[in-house]
């Protein structure tokens, strides 16, 4: 049974690695939200960084779970967040345009 356990260990550790890779994306998304100059650029920061971060966390947890049911549910959650955040990102940007909020430009 030793080879099986070793295999599980490799899966577990690569899952940990993936989660660790995902965390900086979340943190930089928040940094962008604070630092970027206007609503449009803040939307960029949040939508892209957080979705990539969540993708890493989800795939890491899926590797560690070792169960197809949990993996499927994790992927469903990621897909849902992906659709939801890209749609709400577009909605907020469109409303901001219609409200005549000028994008920040470099002088």
């Amino acid at each position: 049974m030793v080879p099986v356990k070793k295999n599980m260990d490799i899966l577990y550790h690569s899952g940990t690695l993936l989660i660790l890779l995902g965390l900086p994306f979340f943190l930089s998304g928040t940094v962008g939200l604070i630092r970027f100059p206007d609503i449009y650029t803040r939307l960029h920061a949040l939508t892209k960084a957080d979705n990539v971060g969540l993708g890493f966390v989800v795939s890491g947890l899926a590797l560690q779970s070792g169960s197809w049911a949990v993996t499927a549910k994790l992927l469903l959650i990621w897909l849902l967040v992906l659709i939801a955040s890209s749609a709400s990102c577009h909605l907020i940007a469109r409303s901001a345009m219609q409200k005549n909020i000028q994008p920040w430009t470099r002088q």
């Binding site: 994306f25 998304g29 962008g32 449009y40 892209k48 960084a49 979705n51 990539v52 994008p103």
Partner: peptide, 26 residues
């Protein structure tokens, strides 16, 4: 997957850099 990964890296670079790296436009 590749493109959104690049997007995440791109945003991370701009958010964490000490210089202002933005040149937005429509």
């Amino acid at each position: 997957l590749r493109q959104s990964f690049h997007g995440g890296i791109d945003v991370m670079r701009r958010a964490l850099s000490s210089r202002q790296l933005l040149d937005p436009g429509l």
